[in-house]
Design a protein around this nucleic acid. Structure first.
Lengths: 241, 241
DNA sequence: ATTAAGCTGTTACATTTATCACAATCTTTT
DNA sequence: AAAAGATTGTGATAAATGTAACAGCTTAAT
């Protein structure tokens, strides 16, 4: 690791939790901690979905994989994020897999315990509804971006989301995305091939919209990327991966 | 209207409400009724998002439209559905528009009233969380279907969803989609052009997977459509438009 | 009954995106 | 330091999808 990289990794990304300190205090009471080494799964597609996961450190991606080995990355979560699904059915199954992109420390909540708390604490119920509303809006906004403006739109939207989620601002108004990403990963986030991503990124580089520094992607011209995906400047809490 | 069409329209589609009768009774207390004629908007993109809408009769589509006149249809709702967003921010704005596809009767709930009820009634809070969880799963499943298997996959997924939402079973194991849909509408649901939809539908017809009857689309070979979009037989409540 | 408007079907052609194949580069392991 | 493995870059080609233009058909309006 070089000095530059170390300093990049030190950045604490702006986490926009919807949970109040009070709510978090209550939740900490009933969660139990578990460590997940890089590459391991918090849960698999098909597991019973009766838990929520509070990510204390590390990063987790939520994925869907196909028979033929293709993978779709739906989300990338980081410290402070809650993940998992609160489900309307009992005995319901995970629709996706969650895997640790780095070593993770996770607080696990049983859905049954949670339901009791929601009955008891109105504020906690409201906080959870806000969390659910927010995560749904993230999904809807991504849905729109993936479907409406072709692969270049999908890629630019994703780069902006990455910049807003993992970004550290640079001197000249850009963002360094403080997470190394391969072209394959990017392609799995937008349902394209790595070759397409490569070509699109090279186009963006020619236009000085993005660049590479020490293997990290740098967003130089935010406005240009916004123009490609017709960005409407959603609230920052919605513009995430 | 012919006899056939009348009988089609009479079908009461299987509505899978997550709200208990108790919850609905409480909600009815605080909702006020409003009628929306076909073509009118329940709300516009950009309106303050401080209400929820309970659809008593009629159908409503949720859309996003662009500067250049393109339209994306995100959802189609029907009687018994709740719609709108419960938002984490105050003063938050609608991300999409809701327009009446038919004359509608709607019960409107103020978010502020609702928050009080959620504080007071644990069961109601749980019901709302189930509703939110379910609607989110619908969006996620559609996201997956739109991105992973190309336009044909997206179309087949949409046809199956329509069949499960609006479908009346036929004698030979198929579904009649009891809602007339233009190719434009279908294309706006999957982010494609009407010409592509036309070609794809003709292919499906040649393969005896779908057909037309009195202008209604008939799904003949559910399995074939499922194979195209790699359907995983989500719960019926998730397989909706 | 006639007109107008909107929807469908179908061409030819352009653009976008995927596929395949392979070389060049960078990283990690030995 | 060398070898193995992963990632990136790029060209040739194929497949998918969009664009434009227009004829025929259906439905709604006059």
């Amino acid at each position: 690791m070089t000095d530059t990289q170390t300093s990049l990794e030190q950045v604490l990304p702006g986490n926009t939790s919807v949970f109040s300190e009070d709510t978090l205090a209550i939740l900490r009471e009933i969660m139990y901690e578990q460590k997940f080494p890089v590459g391991s799964r918090l849960y698999w597609e098909g597991d019973t979905a009766d838990k929520l996961y509070y990510l204390k450190s590390g990063r987790v991606k939520i994925t869907k994989s196909t028979d033929e080995g293709k993978e779709l990355i739906l989300y990338m979560h980081q410290a402070g994020d809650m993940l998992g699904q609160i489900d309307p059915f009992h005995n319901s199954r995970q629709a996706f897999s969650a895997s640790a992109m780095e070593d993770c420390t996770v607080g696990i909540l049983q859905q049954s315990d949670l339901e009791i708390l929601i009955w008891q604490h109105g504020e906690l119920a409201i906080d959870f509804m806000k969390w659910m509303g927010l995560t749904h809006r993230v999904t809807q906004a991504k849905f729109r971006d993936m479907v409406m403006y072709g692969k270049p739109g999908a890629l630019c939207s994703t780069l902006l989301r990455l910049a807003h989620t993992y970004g550290r601002r640079t001197d000249n108004g850009g963002y360094v995305i403080t997470k190394k990403l391969t072209h394959s990963e990017l392609s799995d986030m937008i349902g394209a091939t790595r070759e397409s991503v490569n070509r699109m990124l090279n186009d963006l580089r020619k236009k000085d919209a993005v660049d590479y520094e020490n293997g990290y992607i740098v967003v130089r011209d935010e406005e240009y990327l916004q123009s490609v995906c017709h960005c409407e400047s959603c609230p920052n809490a919605v513009c995430r991966v």
